[in-house]
Design a binder for these strands. Structure first.
Length: 311
DNA sequence: GCGACAG
DNA sequence: ATCTTGTCGC
């Protein structure tokens, strides 16, 4: 796929102030409201992928209306949409530490109708360390490289990390979503900032609660949210804006407890729709399928071509 | 100074 | 993110 806003590409060479300035620009450009054609039912994945025997094979024709009849070859439909099911792309990274230079492997996995249709990976050498709030500048470049190598063009990106739940409302998912101008959501295993409406411990599967901006979050002035009730900036009795949700995607009946997922809008998706989409993409595991597959793909690539080329 | 901090 | 064995429980 091709990048839409090259100027927003996360450049690790920028100074910290420049990085933060770019993030404010990203946040101002981002849309935290629904601007897509995604139907929750259309992206729902019922059966989890079996990762015990390696990565599921990619089937480029999966999901195409004619894939149950036509051979794998020529005659791509002319003039009309080749497929109808939306393409969801999961992105994740794995690192090879203890190597001369630490290497990072980024993987992008495209899924359509619950089946993997394409894998793309990129191996790079991180130039800056991880800094809370600046993750996109460490991982964004490799992720963009993997997405550049992807033939399919996504209807939705699922990133590992936050989106709007970020100090400047410009987390990794938002940054990547704006760069490619593709609807995106962020799925994090831990909360960076913001405050849950209710305590999150020991909740049953299906439970969710809003995450609202707190003192650590610079709320954008021009808030384009559609679902906000009342004022949130005029020092008054308004509620802080909802920037994401904590959602219990999986839980054990008893014994040990699983922590919730922290999901937030990346770009062109509302906070409410983000939770619905992520829940629909979960098929029994804590993490959504696109993320599980991207994680497995990155690990596989780390073992194989991890020692090979650089991008 | 203290606490908090995606991957 | 990564380094790692066993272990508790359905």
């Amino acid at each position: 796929m091709e990048i839409a806003n090259p100027a927003f590409r996360p450049d690790p060479a920028l100074s910290r102030d420049e990085m933060e300035a770019l993030q404010r620009e990203i946040a101002a450009t981002a849309t935290f409201a629904d601007d897509h054609d995604l139907a929750v039912e259309a992206v729902t994945i019922d059966d989890p992928a079996d990762l015990t025997e390696g990565l599921p094979p990619a089937d480029p024709t999966a999901g195409a209306p004619e894939d149950s009849h036509a051979p794998v070859s020529d005659a791509p439909p002319v003039g009309g949409p080749a497929v109808d099911a939306p393409v969801v792309v999961g992105v994740d990274q794995a690192f090879l530490t203890e190597e001369d230079p630490t290497r990072a492997v980024s993987a992008a996995v495209a899924i359509r109708a619950g089946t993997v249709i394409e894998y793309a990976t990129a191996t790079t050498t991180p130039s800056i360390p991880y800094v809370p709030g600046l993750l996109a500048f460490r991982e964004g470049k490799p992720i963009c490289a993997a997405l550049d190598a992807l033939d399919a063009d996504p209807d939705l990106l699922v990133c590992d990390g936050s989106g709007r739940v970020h100090y400047r409302e410009a987390g990794l998912a938002t940054h990547v979503g704006v760069c490619f101008d593709v609807p995106s959501v962020g799925v994090a295993k831990r909360l960076l900032c913001g405050e849950p409406d209710e305590p999150v411990d020991g909740r049953p599967a299906g439970w969710r609660t809003p995450i609202r901006a707190d003192d650590a979050v610079e709320t954008a002035a021009g808030d384009d949210d559609a679902g906000d009730t009342g004022a949130d900036d005029t020092g008054g009795g308004g509620f802080a804006p909802v920037i994401g949700h904590a959602v219990q995607s999986r839980q054990y009946p008893e014994s040990r407890r699983i922590n919730p997922l922290y999901v937030s809008p990346g770009h062109r998706v509302s906070a409410e729709t983000t939770v619905d989409l992520v829940e629909a993409l979960c098929a029994g595991y804590k993490l959504p399928e696109p993320t599980r597959l991207a994680d497995a793909a990155a690990d596989a690539a780390k073992r194989d071509d991890g020692k090979a080329e650089d991008a």
